[in-house]
């Protein structure tokens, strides 16, 4: 069972990021989220979602999803992603195992159903 992200449906609203961080902090913040809206390439209108799982970093872009094993060298053909670095310091996704009433918060709160549980 895992999180699936459809970056083409995503509207970059950051709801996933907020509720994930709430799950960690019991307050409203963005600091602790293991899923974030990727929005650093604003002028190019290029956005998607980054998800840190226990051993991998999932990069869901409109042109496809890439799964990078943590600790391995990134694709040298791609520009370094400033958003990815702080992600590596965060806890991996636990599918909100303590949120019995919701399941994964990012799935429950995505306004456009771009994030699902497979």
């Amino acid at each position: 069972m895992g999180i699936q992200i459809n970056a083409l449906k995503c509207t970059n609203c950051m709801a996933c990021e907020m509720v994930c961080s709430y799950h960690r902090d019991d307050g409203f913040a963005f600091l602790s989220a293991c899923i974030v809206a990727y929005r650093a390439k604003e002028k190019k209108d290029y956005f998607g979602v980054l998800l840190k799982e226990e051993d991998v970093l999932v990069v869901a872009r409109p042109d496809g999803t890439e799964i990078n094993k943590l600790g391995e060298e990134a694709d040298p053909d791609r520009e370094a992603d400033a958003s990815a670095k702080p992600m590596l310091l965060r806890e991996g996704c636990d599918l909100c195992e303590d949120m019995d009433d919701y399941g994964p918060m990012c799935v429950a709160f995505c306004p456009v159903d771009a994030i699902t549980l497979d």
Partner: peptide, 16 residues
């Protein structure tokens, strides 16, 4: 190109 939303807004009110 694509449409995007303001923070936590269910309708994408921006078009690129």
């Amino acid at each position: 190109h694509r449409h995007s939303a303001d923070y936590f807004t269910p309708y994408a009110t921006n078009t690129a």
